[in-house]
């Protein structure tokens, strides 16, 4: 689960690049040609892809934490297995995505160190709390649903190694989403307590999933390098609208109420009112929605969200705890393990 939608990094201009090579590079991308290792690429593209894959990988590694909290409490063998496998997939995705950035010039060790020391970012949505089992259902349904929508477009990108990785990742994201959908359906078919738990979790995650796609696009986003070079394929606002068109009617059919919520600094809902804008516009076919609180979004990005400190604290501790194992592993070259 993740998606690279929110690192909207200003791309450095292509100063000093050979104009002929640059023109050829852009021409190839415009023609839908994939960029492969060994091809000439502008330095800004190399840096941009490295940062994008690193951010995506970081998001997978931190994204493993909120759901990981519930593995010990999952309510059936199948749910326990599925949640373990899902969190495991995220570690696997992180591992694969770090490899894309490794090939572009940064070591994984450095990336993991920069992550735990707060020098690099990860997706904002993992800085929110998951206080009930209902949150696990919502993360897998809404956040993974949003991630698949985003990643399906990223698999149409131009950088070959990232595209190949994304295609494999999307195969597994489909499981995450389906498992989430199954949990939401089960809970909303269940008891009063289960339905209330689901509604409360939905209130916590709906606005977060709208923010998942990143802030409103700046005018002319299509012509900026990120989209011109097909690192980013679809605009944030367009992805967000597609998400609402799919999930708003589904939520309503399930009996969930789409609320506009106020939250405290811990990410808990303090008051709700039904979102009256959330109706289908018959002329366009689009569903309306109340814009999420973008001040909150930027506050969380700057490190002041409900769980930023806790997530990094745990990840750093696990990194430091593992230090001796990594050193022991690197200690000698063992070629033959003892026989069983």
């Amino acid at each position: 689960m993740s998606g690279a939608a929110n690192p909207v990094q200003p791309m450095c201009p292509c100063e000093g690049e050979d104009p002929e090579k640059l023109a050829q590079f852009e021409q190839r991308i415009a023609e839908g040609v994939h960029i492969e290792p060994g091809d000439w690429m502008p330095e800004a593209y190399r840096q941009g892809m490295l940062r994008m894959a690193e951010h995506h990988a970081n998001s997978e590694i931190i994204g493993a934490l909120p759901e990981g909290e519930w593995i010990t409490r999952a309510p059936s063998l199948r749910r326990k297995l599925a949640l373990t496998a899902k969190v495991q997939d995220e570690v696997g995705h992180g591992q694969m995505l770090y490899r894309v950035s490794q090939e572009l010039g940064k070591s994984r060790d450095d990336m993991l160190r920069d992550l735990v020391m707060g020098k690099t970012k990860y997706h904002n949505c993992f800085n929110y709390p998951a206080p009930t089992w209902g949150d696990i259902a919502m993360i897998q349904w809404l956040i993974d649903g949003a991630a698949i929508m985003n990643q399906k477009t990223l698999a149409d990108g131009a950088y070959g190694p990232y595209v190949r990785t994304m295609n494999r990742i999307n195969m597994e994201e489909a499981f995450h989403f389906k498992s989430g959908e199954d949990m939401v359906l089960t809970l909303m078919s269940g008891t009063k307590l289960q339905k209330q738990m689901t509604q409360d979790a939905f209130d916590r995650w709906w606005a977060v999933s709208l923010m998942f796609f990143g802030p409103h696009d700046k005018p002319g986003a299509e012509t900026m390098p990120a989209m011109r070079w097909r690192m980013k394929i679809e605009k944030n606002d367009s992805l967000r609208q597609r998400f609402v068109n799919r999930f708003a009617p589904a939520a309503k059919d399930l009996g969930l109420i789409i609320n506009v919520c106020a939250k405290d600094e811990h990410g808990y809902v303090t008051s709700v009112r039904e979102d009256e804008q959330c109706v289908r516009d018959e002329a366009t076919g689009n569903w309306g929605f109340t814009d999420p609180d973008w001040d909150e979004f930027f506050r969380v990005i700057r490190g002041n969200g409900p769980c930023n400190a806790h997530r990094l604290n745990l990840r750093r501790f696990s990194h430091e705890q593992g230090d001796w194992v990594r050193r022991a592993g690197a200690h000698g070259t063992i070629t033959t393990p003892p026989a069983a």
């Binding site: 990981g68 593995i71 593992g322």
Partner: peptide, 11 residues
């Protein structure tokens, strides 16, 4: 399974 995501080496 509680170690998932917290192990010493990703692999």
């Amino acid at each position: 399974s509680d170690w998932t995501g917290l192990g010493p080496i990703l692999e």
